[in-house]
């Protein structure tokens, strides 16, 4: 294909959008809505994942030792635990630290209530390892491993948290994937309908092109460019809008629900956009290309 023909087709693609203003606007609006929804879902999923990940990192199992365990044996347990791939961090908590932490948790500002235990640490035999996991789903496996280590008396785990987090995580992924697939199908259908309308509106022009010897590629190109442009414009608008709205929404949630400040840490917009921007643009352009290409191909074959 000649370069001048390519330029001509691009110009025609732009002109086509202008010629069918209402249809083009409807397509762009539909595409924008879809990409916006995609952005919204992605941001929710990405943030939830981030929150789950942080929570997972906070889930630990506690490994207690037999009373007669020597320091070397305790060190060996620590070393064995650290060797494992699913372990993020192993932290030794001495009996004193365990008691300190207990006092903080139960007596809060009224530490004087614990004065009675001053010289007699009730948790003297509670030195332990806090083992943090990389992935909460591997908790059961790690627990049975730890239980079988020599001189381990007891392993305490957080079943409820682990199970809830991992099942919510899986559910969220499946749910999001399902919704995104439906959105993808709907958007391809809509862009295809728009191009079909465009093709019907310009069926006379296509017929004339074919009568005077236009190759299929020549007829197809302006429509494909039109589809890509609609996809691109339809993607850029919501992505720009979403960029500003995201920051505002996060700020709003944080001020309105200040309780969440300590519990939830939202992803910064730059982090979300590292994936959302290329995927959103690709999605818009891809849907535009696919919808127009398939539709015009069908029409040319008819």
């Amino acid at each position: 294909m000649r370069f001048s023909t390519f330029i001509y087709s691009i110009r025609q693609g732009f002109k086509n959008i202008g010629r069918n203003k209402m249809f083009s606007l409807a397509s762009i609006a539909t595409m924008a809505a879809l990409i916006f929804l995609f952005g919204l879902f992605y941001a929710i999923v990405a943030n939830f994942n981030h929150i789950v990940k942080s929570a997972e990192e906070g889930v630990a199992i506690t490994v207690f030792f037999n009373e007669d365990a020597t320091q070397d044996e305790i060190n060996q347990i620590g070393a064995d635990l650290k060797k494992r791939d699913d372990v993020l961090e192993v932290k030794y908590v001495s009996a004193e630290e365990a008691w300190e932490s207990f006092q903080e948790e139960y007596f809060g500002d009224n530490k004087e209530l614990a004065e009675g235990f001053k010289d007699d640490n009730p948790l003297a035999k509670s030195a332990n390892y806090e083992v943090y996991l990389k992935n909460v789903e591997s908790q059961d496996e790690l627990v049975s491993y730890a239980e079988n280590l020599p001189q381990v008396r007891k392993v305490r785990k957080s079943d409820a948290v682990a199970k809830t987090l991992s099942s919510v995580n899986v559910l969220l992924w499946y749910g999001s994937l399902g919704i995104m697939l439906i959105l993808l199908g709907v958007s391809i259908f809509l862009i295809s309908s728009t191009i079909t309308v465009g093709v019907n509106v310009r069926s006379e022009e296509i017929a004339i092109m074919k009568y005077i010897g236009a190759k299929d590629g020549f007829v197809r190109l302006p429509f494909v460019i039109e589809g890509i442009l609609i996809g691109l414009i339809g993607a850029v608008i919501p992505l720009v809008l979403f960029y500003f709205l995201y920051n505002k929404a996060v700020a709003y949630v944080m001020t309105k629900f200040s309780l969440l400040n300590n519990l939830v840490d939202f992803l910064p917009v730059s982090e979300v956009y590292r994936v959302l921007l290329p995927v959103g643009l690709l999605l818009g352009v891809g849907i535009g290309f696919l919808g127009s290409f398939v539709t015009i191909r069908k029409h040319l074959r008819a």
Binding site: T5, R19, E204, E205, I208, M209, I212, A214, F218
Partner: peptide
């Protein structure tokens, strides 16, 4: 069967563009 949205120069040139003439 002319293209109503183009002037007549463009209508005639169209037949040549289709053949990818220079």
């Amino acid at each position: 069967r002319l293209l109503e949205d183009r002037d007549i120069y463009a209508n005639v040139a169209f037949a040549m563009r289709v053949t990818e003439a220079k």
